[in-house]
Amino acid sequence: MALTTEASRYRPSAIWQLRLSLFMATYVLGASALYPEVFYTSALIYSHKFLVGIPVLFIGGVCCAALIHGRRQPVRYALDLAQGRWRGCLLVLLFFFASLTAFSTYKIAIPSVVPYYADNWLADVDEWLHGMPPWEIVHKLDSNNWSSVVFNSYEVIWFYQWFGTILFVSLWSDEIARIRYLCAAALTLSVLGTVLALALASVGPVYYHHFVGVDRFHGLNAALDRLDHSYMVREPAAYLLKAYQSGRPSLGGGISAMPSMHVAFAVLNAYLLSSINRWLGVLGWTFAALILYGSVFTGWHYAVDGYASIVVVSVIWWTTGRLVRE
């Protein structure tokens, strides 16, 4: 009886692991089949980062877990964790590498499938919802100290949270919770980052003048130029535009505003943290709010880009919770 109960407990997670694998295999193989040159070039670019990054992430994650949970025997805890979870961790990080490569491939291909067309009406909707351009609202708090917090949170800390959460999940002993998060992350990447980005092809305020030909965001650009840390936006924006103009794949390449993937994953991670601990949830949602604010402050996004991300990710989190735990 005990054996039957134990087997039935893990059968759902095994089924969902298979479903997740098939879903992501389709997503990745689709990118490689539709855009083989872009996909394989991107894979080579990302592989150089991951060959160094995966061991560093794994060792760093194990050491952090040992310091937090190892108590009197952190070395023994670290060794046991590494021995018990290295295969699962490696599979999750490989899944992350493959899906990120496919995501970048689809993102780079957007203008070749659908011309950037949605910026004008997205900006109109933004102004209609808020009664004024949202960037004017968020830039009422302008100061170099505050802008440093916003820019660093958006351009630096967000990436640490994203990679750190993937690493944490890969080492997590709660199998059902791990599968739920990975399914939600896969849907976030594919549904928001690919399908919705393709359906609402747009470039965002930072590129509005270049692609639309109207200097609608002159005030936003002037506000950014007055801030000492605006180079944290200007430099990556110039890098992405140069990559777009060259037509060659590059690390993090591709221009797409709607929806905001920064907001999407910050919200997804906030849901995850809330499911673990109330105070972690408070930190997660505070950070997600800051990223939503920063998406408009930096000029990368319209406010509605973030709102759409929040709605869709909320539906994804609720749906995966209902399905995976059944």
Rank of each mutant, 00 (worst) to 15 (best):
T5P: 01
Y10G: 06
R11Q: 12
S13N: 09
A14T: 12
I15W: 10
S21D: 11
M24Y: 02
A25F: 13
T26K: 07
T26W: 09
T26S: 13
S32F: 09
H48E: 11
H48F: 10
K49L: 15
F50N: 09
V56Y: 04
L57W: 12
F58W: 07
A66F: 07
R71N: 08
R71I: 10
R71P: 04
Y77L: 00
Q83Y: 03
W86E: 02
R87M: 08
G88D: 11
C89M: 13
L91H: 12
L93D: 11
L93R: 09
L94A: 13
L100T: 14
T105W: 03
T105H: 04
I110W: 02
Y117E: 07
A118M: 02
D119F: 02
W121Q: 09
G131I: 04
V138G: 05
H139Y: 08
H139F: 04
L141Y: 14
N144A: 10
N144G: 14
V149F: 15
V149Y: 14
V150E: 05
N152P: 00
N152I: 05
S153T: 11
I157P: 00
F159G: 06
Q161H: 06
G164D: 03
G164T: 07
V169E: 00
S170H: 03
S170N: 05
D174W: 13
D174E: 09
I179L: 11
S190Q: 14
V191H: 06
L196H: 09
L198N: 02
L200P: 02
V203A: 08
Y207I: 07
F211N: 04
G213I: 01
F217T: 00
F217R: 02
N221P: 00
D228L: 15
D228Q: 15
V233N: 05
R234E: 00
P236V: 02
A237T: 11
Y239Q: 06
L241Q: 03
L251P: 00
G253Q: 00
M258T: 12
P259S: 12
V263E: 08
A264S: 14
A264F: 13
F265T: 06
F265W: 12
A266W: 04
Y271P: 04
L272H: 11
W279M: 14
L280D: 12
G281K: 11
V282W: 12
V282N: 11
V296W: 03
F297I: 01
F297Y: 15
T298Q: 10
W300H: 08
D305V: 01
S314H: 13
V315H: 04
W318Y: 15
L323H: 08
